[in-house]
Simulated scan of single mutants.
Amino acid sequence: MSDVADTVRLMRMLHTSDWHLGRSLHGVDLLDHQAAYLDHVVDVVRTEQVDAVVVAGDVYDRAIPPVEAVTLLSETLARLAELTTVVLTSGNHDSATRLGFGAALMRERVQLRTRVAGLDRPVEVTDDEGGTLLVYGLPYLDPDTVRSQLAEPGAPVLARSHEAVTAAAMARVRADLAARAGGPRTRSVVVAHAFVVGGVASESERDIRVGGVDHVPSHVLGGVDYAALGHLHGPQVVSGPAGTTMRYSGSPLAYSFSERHHTKSSVLVDLSGEQVRTELVAAPVPRRLADVTGTLEDVLGAAGAPHVDDWVRVVVTDERRPQDLYARVRARLPHALVVQHRPPAAVGAPALRAVTAAADPVEVACDFVSHVTGARPDDDELAVLRAAHEHAAAAERSA
């Protein structure tokens, strides 16, 4: 690590998230590339003498992952446990129950945090120099699922919002830290899977709105030395309260073309002296992502030439759709994942808005209603649309 403090090292941690094991990219199986990234993680842990690895949610891409993804995770955890302590939390893509199955049977150096109960009991990691790191793992806190569990005994159910449930969880974390005050010197980390205000999203994060709101104010996660965040796929720092460093590690691979300019990485965190110091460790890149736009002649010629080995999204702009368009593009650009014909827009034609995984499903439904009826839904109709979406989302979570 190039900028390690000169003081005695207290603890070193590797922060990663959003592995999405089992995910594909426009039909391309990414499991081999995910395996290469996990080999890289093991190498970093060994080379940098990492004391703890934290994985901030979305370990799998869906609630019922493919067998190959489960096998890859099992083998990776076994390798990491030989070298360090691993703390995994569940994200909104994971089934907390399935990911957490057998948590009590895991070896001591593999800690799964998928339940609300015990979120204020940290994983304690110690080093040879007497330093202690307290890692509080918060599973993804879906307000509809956990707001009763997180309410204080005898108190009303919490408000139906990400802010309310995250604040209640952090109140428990801070209470545990306060009870430890005056003891040996420690560092504290909270691992959270949430959309924190100030973070910048891409197109591939699944919408998590409840009541139309998906954000958590950054001050809610204050009171610890480092907040290891997951959910947003771009590596980024979030401005938080004084004394707390907040960062998204981002996903290890690009999972949409909106992420083509990301530098994928993990975060090496050095908790030395009085300052938390971080360094991004670049992840291996299987192929670059690129956009190629132009006439078919351009695409097959100069515009496409630099991208023969890239995963590309091609937009062909000829006035008329060329014959055998897909076959001709793939012959020149064998890794083209998306091929579209988009002639120059007609004057006065309505602008089209792309619908991505991050789009608010209720807003998409409102656009459809407007398109069909010529008018936006009124308040009563909007309430029906939102209730229908949230009912469907709840059914998916319980699958």
Score class of each variant (00 low, 15 high):
residue 1 M to L: 13
residue 6 D to Q: 14
residue 10 L to P: 01
residue 12 R to N: 03
residue 13 M to V: 10
residue 14 L to C: 03
residue 17 S to L: 07
residue 21 L to N: 02
residue 21 L to F: 11
residue 22 G to T: 02
residue 23 R to N: 11
residue 25 L to G: 04
residue 38 L to K: 06
residue 40 H to F: 14
residue 42 V to K: 00
residue 47 T to K: 14
residue 49 Q to Y: 03
residue 49 Q to S: 15
residue 52 A to Y: 02
residue 53 V to G: 03
residue 57 G to H: 01
residue 61 D to E: 10
residue 65 P to D: 07
residue 74 S to E: 12
residue 78 A to D: 13
residue 79 R to G: 11
residue 85 T to F: 12
residue 85 T to S: 14
residue 87 V to K: 08
residue 92 N to L: 08
residue 95 S to G: 05
residue 96 A to S: 15
residue 97 T to V: 14
residue 101 F to S: 14
residue 102 G to C: 01
residue 105 L to K: 08
residue 109 R to L: 09
residue 109 R to D: 12
residue 118 G to L: 05
residue 120 D to E: 11
residue 123 V to G: 04
residue 125 V to A: 09
residue 127 D to C: 12
residue 129 E to A: 14
residue 130 G to L: 07
residue 132 T to D: 08
residue 132 T to F: 06
residue 133 L to N: 10
residue 136 Y to F: 10
residue 141 L to M: 06
residue 141 L to Q: 01
residue 141 L to I: 08
residue 142 D to M: 06
residue 142 D to S: 08
residue 144 D to Y: 10
residue 145 T to R: 15
residue 146 V to Y: 01
residue 147 R to H: 09
residue 152 E to M: 09
residue 153 P to G: 08
residue 155 A to H: 14
residue 157 V to M: 10
residue 159 A to M: 00
residue 163 E to A: 06
residue 163 E to F: 00
residue 163 E to R: 07
residue 164 A to V: 08
residue 164 A to D: 05
residue 166 T to I: 07
residue 167 A to C: 11
residue 169 A to S: 09
residue 171 A to K: 07
residue 172 R to D: 05
residue 176 D to E: 14
residue 178 A to K: 08
residue 181 A to W: 11
residue 190 V to K: 00
residue 202 S to D: 08
residue 203 E to L: 03
residue 208 I to R: 08
residue 228 A to M: 02
residue 228 A to Y: 02
residue 229 L to A: 03
residue 230 G to C: 10
residue 231 H to K: 06
residue 232 L to N: 05
residue 233 H to S: 01
residue 234 G to K: 14
residue 235 P to R: 04
residue 236 Q to C: 07
residue 238 V to A: 06
residue 240 G to M: 08
residue 243 G to F: 10
residue 248 Y to F: 13
residue 255 Y to V: 09
residue 256 S to I: 11
residue 257 F to C: 01
residue 260 R to W: 04
residue 263 T to H: 15
residue 268 L to W: 06
residue 277 R to C: 07
residue 278 T to P: 03
residue 283 A to F: 12
residue 283 A to K: 12
residue 285 V to C: 09
residue 288 R to G: 13
residue 290 A to Q: 00
residue 300 L to I: 06
residue 302 A to E: 13
residue 302 A to I: 10
residue 303 A to G: 11
residue 306 P to A: 07
residue 307 H to G: 05
residue 310 D to Q: 01
residue 318 D to L: 03
residue 319 E to H: 01
residue 324 D to Y: 03
residue 325 L to K: 10
residue 330 R to D: 00
residue 339 V to A: 04
residue 340 Q to C: 09
residue 343 P to R: 00
residue 343 P to C: 00
residue 347 V to F: 13
residue 354 A to Y: 05
residue 356 T to D: 10
residue 357 A to S: 12
residue 369 V to R: 00
residue 370 S to K: 15
residue 371 H to P: 04
residue 374 G to K: 00
residue 375 A to G: 07
residue 383 A to L: 04
residue 384 V to Q: 04
residue 386 R to F: 04
residue 390 E to Y: 01
residue 397 R to W: 11
residue 397 R to I: 05
residue 397 R to Y: 10
residue 397 R to K: 07
residue 399 A to D: 15
